[in-house]
């Protein structure tokens, strides 16, 4: 029996679908541009007048219009949504908090890392080995995940995170350092 080998499939970089389904995704315009830039041959095959005429063959014109209208609406919606999300991403910030544990010992907690979209556990592990300390992932009061690193390494951590953000192209995200001193125990009644 002959062996069947895998077919090579091109996936759209923008919406991850096979290009012929781009028109049903939310980012049709950008997908089209991408395809034209990267796979001109395929682009011509899909978006030439011939192909468009063929695609509408078995449906009535009215129905076809209805579909394209709906799709347009959906696309606009999707675009607005992505814009909003991007804004939100850029507006958020990463907070590195230095918490005093006792006198000269500190832990730092890093929160707001969701924007990077990386595995928190792995990052905690890299921190642990980079700074040779303990690091763990915990949930804070708002049920968001944060990384706790033992030892006062906030400057180094800040540098590392800034580099990480640059790699991801999220330069706008601010990294903020806060000092959180432990409140002194209330003076007991005399």
């Amino acid at each position: 029996m002959t062996e069947v080998v895998a077919r090579e499939i091109i996936y759209c970089d923008i919406c991850s679908f096979p290009p012929e389904y781009c028109e049903f995704g939310g980012t049709f315009k950008r997908c089209k541009d991408w395809l034209q830039a990267n796979h001109l041959q395929l682009f011509e095959k899909l978006y030439s007048d011939d192909a468009l005429a063929k695609a509408t063959s078995t449906l009535s014109i009215e129905k076809e219009q209805q579909i394209s209208r709906d799709l347009e609406k959906k696309q606009a919606k999707e675009e607005a949504k992505m814009e909003r999300e991007l804004q939100k991403k850029l507006a958020s910030k990463i907070i590195i908090k230095r918490i005093e544990r006792n006198r000269r010992k500190h832990v730092i907690s890093i929160s707001g890392l969701e924007v990077c979209n990386i595995d928190m556990k792995k990052l905690a592990k890299t921190f642990a080995s980079k700074f040779a300390t303990g690091a763990s992932v915990t949930k804070n009061a708002e049920k968001k995940e944060e990384i706790l690193v033992q030892g006062d390494v906030s400057d180094e951590a800040k540098e590392y995170i800034e580099n990480l953000l640059q790699e991801k192209g999220l330069d706008e995200v601010k990294v903020e350092q806060i000092d959180d001193k432990k409140k002194k125990p209330k003076p007991t009644a005399p």
Partner: peptide, 17 residues
Amino acid sequence: KYPDCFPKVQVDRGAIK
């Protein structure tokens, strides 16, 4: 990758969405 190895059905264009 291996389209011919599975049973296929086809829907019309109106259903894709």
